[in-house]
């Protein structure tokens, strides 16, 4: 591929490869931006850039990830995503065939999420100046619950529901990237969460806060929320589902699954009185059939998140500065 500089080659790439895949009336207008009317007046708007190595991994690829990422972020606002923009940064020499596969995957995922890609951009950078492909997606969605969920709405006494097992994306990506010879192949959990969220909204659950767990894992997700909410949370370690293979890889590499990345898991913080109803609603969806109550919010030290261990002690979780550094002296 040598489609740099915004010239005719770039246009050719868009015209011949990208546009036909995503074709829809709004995109086909070929305007500088998309114009559309949305039902309702409360919108959620989010953006995310995606960089991943390898771009094809067990359970997904960068295209799938790029659509899920923004769709999920919009869903976490309590909204049904409607329209997306897609921006590609391609490295000169990136195989057209791979791009084709990525585009197909994006198309499939967007269709699954019932969103339309209505505008986009493509840049090609010189060889050596990019990692093959970067994708930015932005999107808008219509907020479906009132009031919408937000960390500031979390209250002491609320319960924390986790949608499924944690850590698979981070470990699968690492295993694929490093060629780790594991006993079993581990698939990324990368998935669209909008329907699972809608099942909660449709059941009329009062959602205090939603958060998809991405980089930094479950730990970073809950710490951020508790920091904003100025409340504390206790997680019961024994209730957090972790697959056998994730657990064994974490054990052998000395990694903490609480800090390992996910791309298709979220937590819902709801009033304790709604916990049974919320669990039932979530479990009715395939992505939530392993949903559990993992913890409780309390009015303890602001921002304090602890994990009750199997022996009954309470381990403190904090934001890590970077990678997990040894602390034992």
């Amino acid at each position: 591929m040598a489609h740099g500089g915004g010239g005719s080659l770039s246009k050719k790439l868009i015209d011949e490869l990208i546009s036909p895949v995503f074709s829809n009336p709004l995109l086909d207008q070929r305007n500088d931006g998309a114009s559309f009317i949305t039902p309702g007046d409360s919108l959620a708007f989010s953006t995310d850039s995606h960089v991943v190595s390898p771009i094809f991994f067990p359970g997904g690829d960068i295209g799938h990830l790029a659509i899920c990422g923004t769709v999920n972020d919009i869903a976490m606002c309590g909204a049904q995503p409607s329209y997306l923009s897609v921006g590609f940064i391609l490295e000169e020499g990136f195989p057209t065939n791979d791009l084709w596969k990525v585009l197909q995957s994006m198309k499939r995922t967007a269709d699954d999420a019932k969103v339309q890609i209505v505008t986009g951009d493509t840049k090609v950078v010189e060889k050596g100046k990019g990692d093959g492909i970067y994708i930015n997606t932005s999107g808008v969605g219509v907020i479906k619950c009132d009031p919408p969920p937000a960390p500031t709405r979390v209250q002491a006494g609320d319960v924390v529901i986790l949608s499924g097992d944690i850590g698979r994306h981070g470990i699968a990506i690492m295993a694929a990237r490093e060629g780790l010879e594991l006993e079993t192949t581990l698939k990324s959990d990368c998935a669209l969460l909008n329907e699972a969220v809608m099942s909660l909204i449709d059941a009329g659950i009062e959602l205090h806060c939603l958060r998809d767990l991405t980089r930094g894992g479950l730990a970073s997700g809950v710490i951020e929320i508790m920091d904003t909410a100025s409340l504390s949370m206790e997680i019961d370690e024994s209730t957090v589902p972790i697959s056998k293979s994730v657990r064994s890889v974490c054990e052998i590499l000395g990694l903490d699954p609480f800090y390992t990345a996910n791309e298709g898991r979220f937590i819902a913080i709801v009033p304790a009185t709604k916990q049974d109803k919320a669990l039932a609603a979530l479990r009715s969806h395939p992505l939530g059939n392993d949903a559990r109550i993992i913890g409780k919010v309390s009015s303890g030290d602001p921002g304090l998140v602890t994990v009750k261990t199997s022996i009954g002690t309470h381990r403190i979780l904090t934001m890590l500065s970077g990678e997990q550094l040894p602390r034992i002296c």
Partner: peptide, 24 residues
């Protein structure tokens, strides 16, 4: 052997292998 294989890979690929000058 199976454990060793993964550990070997982990060292070679520097997966969570901070360098240390610890006498302990």
């Amino acid at each position: 052997p199976s454990e060793l294989r993964i550990l070997h890979q982990a060292i070679e690929k520097q997966l969570n292998t901070a360098l240390t000058s610890s006498l302990g």
